[in-house]
């Protein structure tokens, strides 16, 4: 079997004095689903565009399927399938036409390409819509067609840049199922960037969290969560004042506390057993929580821990609150 690894070593991409990607290294094993997480502007897409031969690195190197992305770009294009964040579809073409051309570019005859196109249209459930111009497709259909285009040449390695952004939950689950199937049945290595932690948690064998161009944490989701330690009690209050008072009141009983907007998180080893004490102390302090929940750590918590911010892009209002 061919080499299906991705190796990235000390990758740097600099625009003027701004380092979009700052000394990033990681290795993706053959047959792995690797999740690349980060807020907008963290350097995810830049890293992907270097790995997929669309951009050149300023320093460092990347090997995809054993081929150097700078000096062996043509080989990289042959072993890698790419579905970019910006879906590149021609609205005036039909799905069958686009898939056929894609196949022909990868060396198939027109007949072979048409056969492959039919197979893929079936796979992504677009067989009924071959007569419709792509411009008339819904967002979910466009994503599915884009994925099909990336699969035409049976790539050994698949790059998916935010494959489900903007999709409804049902379409998202369709894509997830497809990604899992490709990985399981064909041993395809999958490199996935996402802004949904849930998606990385669900799909990825390992994740890397990238923030300000640097890798902030890397590992299996379960390990990352475990490293955070124990469970947490999350108490929501009406305002930040109350959060602060409660934090002062409860800090000593937790291993660690964290405030996240109007939520106070208490990380402790036996959270459930500590709930009555928390409630009593809050009552004594005259603080009335809006809600109290008990959670296992999530990737969101990991993200908060390593980057000091929530994963999802805060609205302006929330950003202010956070800064306060």
């Amino acid at each position: 079997m061919s080499n299906r690894d991705i190796v990235v070593e000390n990758l740097v991409k600099q625009y003027g004095s701004f380092k979009a990607v700052d000394d990033v290294s990681f290795k993706v094993q053959s047959g792995e689903i690797f999740g690349f997480l980060g807020p907008n502007g963290a350097g995810k897409s830049t890293t992907v565009s270097i790995m997929t031969t669309l951009a050149l690195p300023t320093a460092g190197r990347a090997l995809v399927g054993g081929y150097d992305v700078v000096s062996e770009a043509a080989d990289v294009r042959r072993v890698a399938g790419v579905a970019l964040q910006e879906i590149g579809l021609d609205p005036l073409m039909k799905s069958m036409e686009m898939l056929t051309i894609q196949g022909q570019m990868f060396g198939m005859t027109r007949k072979q390409a048409q056969g492959r196109a039919r197979e893929l249209l079936d796979l992504v459930k677009l067989s009924e819509f071959t007569d419709r111009l792509v411009g008339k497709y819904s967002g979910g259909m466009r994503r599915r067609l884009d994925l099909a285009l990336a699969l035409v040449h049976e790539p050994a390695i698949l790059f998916l840049d935010e494959p489900t952004t903007g999709l409804d939950p049902a379409s998202r689950r369709d894509i997830w199922a497809e990604v899992r199937r490709l990985n399981k049945q064909q041993g395809m290595t999958i490199f996935l960037t996402t802004q949904y932690l849930e998606e990385a948690d669900e799909l990825a064998d390992r994740v890397a969290i990238i923030d300000h161009g640097k890798i902030a944490a890397m590992g299996a989701p379960a390990d990352l969560k475990a490293a955070l330690g124990g469970e947490s009690i999350n108490v929501t209050f009406r305002d930040l004042d109350e959060v602060e008072k409660a934090a002062n009141e409860l800090r000593e009983m937790a291993n660690r506390t964290q405030t996240d907007r109007k939520v106070l998180r208490l990380y402790l080893d036996r959270a459930a057993a500590a709930v009555p004490t928390v409630v009593t102390r809050l009552q004594q302090a005259g603080l009335e929580p809006l809600s109290l929940t008990l959670t296992q750590p999530t990737l969101d918590d990991v993200f908060l821990q390593v980057t000091g911010q929530r994963f999802d892009a805060p609205t302006e209002d929330e950003a202010e609150t956070q800064a306060a």
Binding site: T52, L54, R78, L84, E86, I87, G88, L89, L92, F106
Partner: peptide, 16 residues
């Protein structure tokens, strides 16, 4: 048109 709708980049990712 193909540059604006992104299809040009998509084609650049093939051996065309």
């Amino acid at each position: 048109r193909t540059i604006e709708n992104g299809y040009f980049d998509k084609l650049l990712l093939t051996p065309v």
